[in-house]
Simulated scan of single mutants.
Amino acid sequence: MPSLPVERITPFDPPPELAQLRATSPLTRLRYPDGHLGWLVTGYHMARQVLSDPRFSARSQLKRAPTVRPGIEPFYRAPALPGWLVDMDAPEHTRIRRQLAKAFTAHRMRSLRPRIEAIVSDRLTAMGEAGDPADLVESFALPVPSLVICELLGVPYTERTTFQRDSATLFSLEATAEQAVRAMADLEAFLTDLTASKRRRPGEDLVSTLATDGELTTAEIAGVAALLLSAGHETTANSLGLGVFALLSHPDQLARLTAEPGLADTAVEELLRYLTIFHFGVPRTPLEDVPLAGEVVRAGEAVTVSLPAANRDPQRFAGPDLLDIGRRQGGHLAFGHGVHQCIGQNLARAEMRIAFPALFQRFPSLRLAVSPEQVPLGRDNGFYGVHRLPVRWS
């Protein structure tokens, strides 16, 4: 009985065993670290089916981690924390998501574009003034989404050291249960105080809007803000850092992007598909017996949907293991699918569509300052990426 494959041979490709399993069946048995026998979904069409089927629950009480991750133990097999809608089903999930939806529309993200452009420009200027070599993660990939999500939520950027540390702990595979509980408590205490202050003196930010609408409790607002703040900068930071590494490692694709800036939108979609940083998959649990692929997934049996495997499925994407920034095949699952599809996806897209072209326009000779083998990969995190990306341009 296989456990979840996690060992990569190359930096940008999922573990090869995932493709081998998918070639046999889109649904295979999976042994979880606690000994539980559940299921692994590797096929694209079955992934969409499971993620859109309300019979498969997202409730944290039912979830199991497919990898050894001590920091998740206090939060799985337990009721969802207030506001953590990713761990809820309807109607609670629906109620909370409805309050957030208006802040993350495509129209609202377009209205944020000038501010995102200014943040990107400021970071590139600072990076240039500091000179090379530089760590692209520290200088650019991390501060850009951190600044953007702080402004959207109304969180002072001066608090970045604290929330970045707590977020890193929550997503680390190496954090202990005690460390994760402490990080969550610190993050939510900080955001509870922030919510209270926004109720007294509201601004134009999302936390102020939620605090004055009166639809969510203080604990729910703090929880929502913790989720958006932590996931909102970690995901995009990893996508930017790993995306730059991928483009530098595929000079033909980088040349296309710099020669044709109009490809930015499709390039971002292709990088999201090709890299799929949520690399351990999405957990779901059937509430009743469900027939799938000639099998019966019993109620209560854990299911892990492998997004990287689904996004490399040759039955959906031609030449799926090739990075092609001109690819017109949409519909990737990097943001998930169904009612739990990432609510911040339009924000992430806006940041990446602005950041990639601007970076290579400002530094057309950008290149790695170390050999590719020396780039430290983020295998020890719930989001795959690079810990550092040393670069030069002069």
Score class of each variant (00 low, 15 high):
D132F: 03
L229P: 05
H233V: 06
T195D: 02
A211T: 10
L147W: 00
A189C: 10
L227D: 01
G241D: 06
D132C: 10
E174N: 15
E151Y: 01
E234V: 08
S172W: 06
A189L: 08
D186T: 15
G131P: 07
E159L: 14
L216D: 09
T209Q: 14
V144H: 06
V137M: 13
A180C: 11
V144G: 06
R182W: 11
V224N: 10
T266D: 15
Q164H: 15
P202A: 13
L254P: 04
T266V: 11
L229R: 00
R182V: 12
A185S: 12
Q253H: 06
T276I: 08
D132Y: 03
T212A: 14
L136S: 05
P143H: 13
G232W: 05
G241C: 08
V244T: 13
A225L: 10
S239D: 08
A231D: 08
D265M: 08
A226R: 07
L228W: 11
L173A: 04
G214E: 02
E204A: 14
S197Y: 03
V224Q: 04
L194W: 01
M184A: 12
V144W: 00
T162E: 14
A196L: 09
P156I: 04
D252C: 05
E188S: 14
D205T: 09
A237G: 15
V144K: 03
R273A: 06
F171Q: 03
S230A: 15
R199F: 02
C150Q: 05
T212E: 15
M184G: 12
A189S: 15
A180P: 08
F163L: 09
R256A: 14
L271K: 09
G243F: 12
A259E: 07
T258Q: 14
E151N: 02
A177V: 13
R201N: 13
G262D: 12
C150R: 01
G232M: 06
A134L: 05
T276E: 11
